[in-house]
Each structure stands twice: as structure tokens, then as C-alpha cells.
Write a protein that binds this DNA or RNA. Structure first.
Length: 271
DNA sequence: AAGGCCTCCAACCGCCGCAAG
DNA sequence: ACTTGCGGCGGTTGGAGGCCT
């Protein structure tokens, strides 16, 4: 007796979303808000599974999403959070406003993992690889447990760390350099920030923006801890142009400053 | 230029936790 | 206490596009 599928398998469309489907979903959610995902496809006139709608919305269509590559500061934050939380992407994403768990997971698997390996750090345990190799010889029992690494991290993350533990002993931070290392040190030595990390409170990046001096890497463009630019915040809006937001009939965009739109060259495209 | 390989990421799948009945 | 159904999560996959030879 298996569980009932979340939707009729017959007649449910799969694969990439079309602009038309996006439009329907956005229109529906902006009008009705997020409610019972199971009912959304029917009500919105989509031949999609409710789950698929939720995923599309949360990972791609949500207006508060930041798009584009993670900045180095965000990346460093992800590494640090991963060291403490393990593969709990949703928890990590919760600390990075505008980023989704899927995005962070993908970025981890495609970029950060390799980066850490290159730096000689095990991306699972966050231990230096050499040290790990040595310790593996003495802890063969752990090898027999396929979940050992993750369990370790889970347990680490499940207990609330004391202030000594907060004081940046993570091997990752030892490997970071310059401004970002300083930044992370200050994050980890800040009790209130660390507490907020363990309790579900203010997103960490928000807290950072409030409490930290803006650290800027002069060598890299758009690679700083400053507030996101207008372009960052409007990435979704700009993306929408690709399939014509004005065709959507959204009223919400009326609030955009027409001067800003002009600056972005949007108004010129609008006909 | 073309074919093969690699990388990236959107989307799917299956499991889990929780709330309602 | 148990069952059912839903939302959410993390792992995985497939295809598009880029890179290399």
C-alpha cells in the first residue's frame, strides 16, 4: 500500500517550464498567495504537479530571489555554515537571503567542493585531507558506517555551541585569506550572530550587513559584502523581460520608479 | 568545422516530519 | 495510537551549452 502520488501521473507535464506556464503560476500566486500547492495547478490552469509548481516558485520565480553567482563572501559563509550544519541546505539557504537551497546545493557541488579539494580540505568533514588520511587509519570503525561523516556533523550541529567553540577553529577559515578571513573571524566571535545562527532568527547575511563594516575586495568586481545593488535585486525583474512581464498583467510593477526603469533601459523596451 | 567530453543547473524523485482526522 | 496527506528537504539526473581536441 504505497502512498498516493502527489498528483495524477497521467496528463501531468514534466520538464522545463515554458514562459506561458511561468506566467500562469506567477499570476496565480500574486493574486491568491501561496496556498495548498496541491490545488495550485488546477486553479492556475497548469498541467503540472503541485510539487513542481512549488519548486518552480521557490527556486526560480519568487520575486525576492537574488540571481547570479554567489559572491565570495556568500561562498565563504556557505562553507562555514556547511562545516557546522552539514548538508542541511535549507538551513544554510535561510541564512542567505535571496538564495535557495537548490542554488546553494548546486553551487556547492559544482564549485565549492572542487575549490575545497584543491585547497586540500575534505568537503565533507572540512578537515585537511592529510590529517584525515592519518586519522582514517586509526578510526576504521567509522569507515564501516557510511553515514559517519554526516552523523558527526549532525551531532555537532544539533548541540548549541559554547562561545569557545565559536571562536573560529574551523579549518576552512584557516584557509581563507585577507578580508574574508577577517570577516569570518568576526562573525564567529560575535556571540549574537552565532546565537542567531543556531536559533532561527535573522538571516546571517542581513545581520552582517547591519553589524559589519563593508568589506570590499578591490580586485574583484561585484564581489563584496555591500548591500546588493539595484541590479541584483531586480535580476528577477530583468529576467522577466525575457518573456515580457508586461504581458503578465502584473500591477505590482507599477510601483517601480519609472526613472529607475529608464536608467535600466527597460522603459525603452516597453511598448 | 565537427565530434566528443565536461560542466552546470533546473527539475525530478523519493523519503521524512508533522498535523489533522 | 494509528493512518493519511501535505509540504519540505536532500540526493540525483538529464539536457543544454561550453570547451577541448
Amino acid at each position: 500500500m504505497g502512498r498516493q502520488p502527489c498528483c495524477d501521473k497521467l496528463g501531468v507535464k514534466k520538464g522545463p517550464w515554458t514562459a506561458e506556464e511561468d506566467k500562469k503560476l506567477i499570476n496565480f500566486i500574486l493574486t491568491n498567495g501561496q496556498c495548498c500547492w496541491r490545488a495550485v495547478p488546477k486553479l492556475a490552469g497548469l498541467r503540472r504537479c503541485g510539487k513542481s509548481c512549488r519548486l518552480r516558485w521557490t527556486n526560480y520565480l519568487r520575486p525576492d530571489l537574488k540571481r547570479g553567482l554567489l559572491t565570495e563572501a556568500e561562498e565563504q559563509l556557505v562553507i562555514d555554515l556547511h562545516a557546522r550544519l552539514g548538508n542541511r541546505w535549507s538551513k544554510i539557504a535561510a541564512r542567505l537571503p535571496g538564495r535557495t537551497d537548490n542554488e546553494i546545493k548546486n553551487h556547492w557541488n559544482t564549485h565549492i567542493k572542487k575549490k575545497l579539494l584543491k585547497m586540500g580540505i575534505d568537503p565533507v568533514t572540512h578537515e585537511p585531507l592529510k590529517k584525515q588520511a592519518a586519522s582514517q587509519e586509526t578510526t576504521t570503525s567509522l569507515q564501516n558506517n557510511p553515514q559517519s561523516a554526516d552523523n558527526h556533523q549532525l551531532k555537532e550541529s544539533e548541540r548549541v555551541p559554547n562561545s569557545e567553540e565559536n571562536s573560529s577553529t574551523s579549518p576552512v577559515e584557516n584557509s581563507s585569506s585577507g578580508d574574508e578571513s577577517i570577516l569570518l573571524d568576526s562573525i564567529c566571535s560575535d556571540d549574537s550572530l552565532m546565537n542567531s545562527l543556531w536559533l532561527d532568527q535573522t538571516p546571517l547575511v542581513d545581520a552582517l550587513w547591519d553589524s559589519e563594516p563593508k568589506v570590499q575586495n578591490p580586485t574583484t568586481k561585484n564581489n563584496d559584502m555591500a548591500m546588493p545593488s539595484w541590479e541584483d535585486n531586480c535580476a528577477w525583474f530583468l529576467d522577466c523581460q525575457d518573456f515580457g512581464i508586461h504581458d503578465f498583467g502584473f500591477n505590482c510593477f507599477n510601483e517601480f520608479d519609472s526613472n529607475s526603469l529608464q536608467t535600466l533601459g527597460i522603459e525603452g523596451k516597453d511598448h
